[in-house]
């Protein structure tokens, strides 16, 4: 899984390096796929979409990427049958101030979600931390489908323990569990934005396996 995490970070880097206006959405997805397969990834549960206002993540279309587009990605390479996921957001060109302002909420939610991921705590604690941050920012009514799905889920061989990070999941976080924490969220002013890292539980807390910067990547 550490190897898969390195490959996931490389996929994000490839998008940063090669994304540009004029490409089609499916070419963006192919950029990520190619970099990861070139490093040995066997499969990828991956979605990369681009728009000035994304409604949700979905498989890529033939839409032509425009300057100013927000590119969001959920990238999930597989090595030896084990999946690792990373979620990131980038912008082609200088983003409007509202994009940075709202993305900062996601970053804060991510940090608090990581802090809540303590060994022995229930999985729901992570969801509560993330939902609480968004609620405090005034987005309580968006903390439910269709504006988001779950705040994370198990990873590895499929999507098992600890299950979905959502209210009501009382599964205790145990050392060795691997899952993603992702406060991916539709925000009415900006559209859907993504941020997430795969973590492994240590004896005390969650440690990220994926390492790309949490900041929005701005490509001028």
């Amino acid at each position: 899984m550490k190897r898969a995490a390195e490959i996931a970070d490389a996929g994000v880097q490839a998008l940063h390096d090669e994304a540009q206006p004029g490409l089609k959405e499916y070419e963006l997805a192919a950029i990520v796929e190619y970099r990861m397969r070139s490093l040995g990834a066997e499969d990828n549960f991956g979605m990369v979409v681009a728009n000035s206002h994304n409604q949700a993540l979905h498989p890529p279309t033939d839409r032509v990427v425009q300057p100013g587009d927000i590119i969001i990605g959920e990238i999930t390479p597989c090595i030896g049958g084990l999946f690792v996921q990373i979620c990131r957001t980038m912008v082609l060109g200088r983003p409007a101030p509202v994009v940075q302002e709202k993305y900062a909420i996601l970053k804060k939610a991510m940090g608090l979600g990581m802090d809540a991921a303590r060994t022995g705590a229930p999985a729901s604690a992570i969801a509560a931390a993330i939902n609480g941050t968004l609620t405090d920012a005034g987005y309580e009514k968006y903390c439910r489908p269709p504006f988001m799905r779950v705040r994370g889920h198990g990873l590895g061989c499929g999507s098992s323990a600890p299950g979905n990070l959502e209210d009501g999941n009382q599964t205790r976080l145990e050392e060795g569990m691997t899952f993603i924490i992702h406060p991916n969220q539709y925000i009415p002013e900006t559209g859907y934005m993504t941020l997430g890292d795969t973590v492994v539980m240590t004896a005390q807390k969650a440690e990220a396996l994926t390492r790309s910067s949490w900041d929005i990547y701005v490509k001028d």
């Binding site: 549960f45 979605m47 498989p59 890529p60 279309t61 033939d62």
Partner: peptide, 13 residues
């Protein structure tokens, strides 16, 4: 052919 977990090529009608 190996069946992928998600169909992630160009998806349009």
């Amino acid at each position: 052919g190996k069946h992928s977990v998600l169909k992630r090529g160009c998806s349009t009608w």
